[in-house]
Nucleic acid binder design. Structure first.
Lengths: 248, 248
DNA sequence: CGGGGGATTGAATCTTGTCAACGTTGGTGG
DNA sequence: CCACCAACGTTGACAAGATTCAATCCCCCG
């Protein structure tokens, strides 16, 4: 199979799986038509870099399916993942030409892209888009701050438990239910990518995964499938408040 | 002296020190007048809590003078500062009633507050405010992600150097010049508050400050005044790219 | 069947945290 | 005016947690 990026528009906005959650969520039919006119799809294979830090970026985009990460790299190579992008999450900043981060496809990825210039013009006269983008950005800011608590204060064990909880939560949200009890999740990340997001080394991630397994808090089926026998018990290990960061 | 919070409006917007940088930066005269009608000032003493996490919050606000922090606290007491608020920075989230964070005055603080309900209404019909707020929120998100790199990957020494560099940068920005060469800065934070922001203990902060002093990278004059003989040299210790995170 | 990327495990090391003592400073009241 | 107190800061000794380096394992794919 060849690596292909541009793909034919695979769908109508009306049947788009992220129609009601993405940046276009609040749009009326006519606004959606305007977006539709400037949109195109791109797909990426797991491991491909979507955008290199500093590169010119002539589009903004929504994740349709798959998972991507935002990464910041220091001169000596130390890498920190600063954002985990699930379906409906937005990439790119209107009014700025380059991305400050590497955007990497962690799984096979489908993105709905809008050419930047037309998107900005459309945004200027479409409050519904600007409103939704502000709302989403504020949510991302809250998520980033939650992650600062994790990076600054949590133990390796709590970090792992928190990550699993977040993935379980996003997974549940995709199916429109709330996380609880027994859950089965698919890890979209390698151990190395988990480590990059958690501010750990991959060895520490592996050890803590093994520890959680030994203690029955998780079960592993293959390397990427995790069974959570008791979501609430895992939340306690994550050291989070009772509400577990559910939307206010 | 008694602790007083509400204060008489000490100034006209026209002579406000943050007029051109705050959420009102893009407002025209008439929009400013509308904001003026719903604004009031509150002052806080160093150490006072401005807002408790979870509390109802009937206003949003801009920092006019002084420095405040946003803090997140775990059930067992571990605390992480997730935001450092300088003059012109914005507090509060339109469309949400409670703050998820403690907001603490680290120095004496003056805030320009807007009653939330009228502010939201005004925002709905004043694109200049919403635009500016989106821009500021995106900047804060970038800053939060920069801080995630610090918390996840930098050494204690690099963390301290980074914090000093950031304070120097904000300090320079207030006086509209770029940081370089010899600088004298006033720390708005105690060692404990520095530790809370850096994901360290106060002892480690103290030790690394001493180490930087021993090596001539900083000089201390009292506990709160820091002399940076060579800003560029300090930036190297901070492990940052050459540009040092200057606005794109 | 063999190769290779990802994952696991072990042992030694190092950074940072913890606990405790001591120093410094500024304010208060005798 | 001075002594005392409390808050903040510094320093030291030790312990704990995470990293580093290295060996080995496990699958999946050709």
């Amino acid at each position: 199979m060849t690596i292909h990026e541009k793909v034919d528009a695979p769908m109508q906005c009306g049947s788009c799986p992220i129609r009601h959650r993405a940046v276009c969520a609040r749009c009326e039919a006519d606004e959606l038509a305007a977006l539709d006119a400037i949109k195109f799809y791109r797909s990426f294979q797991a491991g491909q870099t979507v955008i290199w830090a500093g590169d010119q970026m002539d589009f903004v985009a929504s994740v349709v399916t798959g998972v991507a990460t935002l990464n910041q790299v220091m001169e000596d190579g130390r890498t920190q993942t600063v954002g985990l992008l699930f379906p409906s999450d937005f990439v790119g900043r209107p009014g700025r030409s380059g991305s400050p981060y590497n955007v990497v496809a962690e799984t096979d990825l489908l993105m709905c892209c809008f050419r930047k210039k037309p998107f900005e013009e459309l945004m200027a006269r479409t409050p519904h888009i600007a409103q939704r983008l502000l709302e989403m950005t504020l949510d991302e800011l809250d998520a980033a701050r939650e992650w600062m608590l994790l990076l600054g204060r949590k133990t390796a064990r709590e970090k792992i438990a928190s990550l699993l909880a977040i993935i379980a939560r996003r997974d549940a949200a995709l199916h429109l239910n709330t996380p609880s009890g027994r859950m089965v999740i698919e890890l979209p990340l390698t151990r190395e990518a988990m480590a990059a997001y958690l501010g750990l080394t991959l060895e520490t991630v592996s050890r803590q995964m093994s520890a959680l397994k030994r203690e029955g808090l998780i079960e592993l089926s293959g390397k990427r499938t995790v069974i959570i026998p008791d979501y609430e018990a895992l939340m306690i290990e994550a050291g989070e408040d009772a509400d577990g960061g559910l939307p206010a």
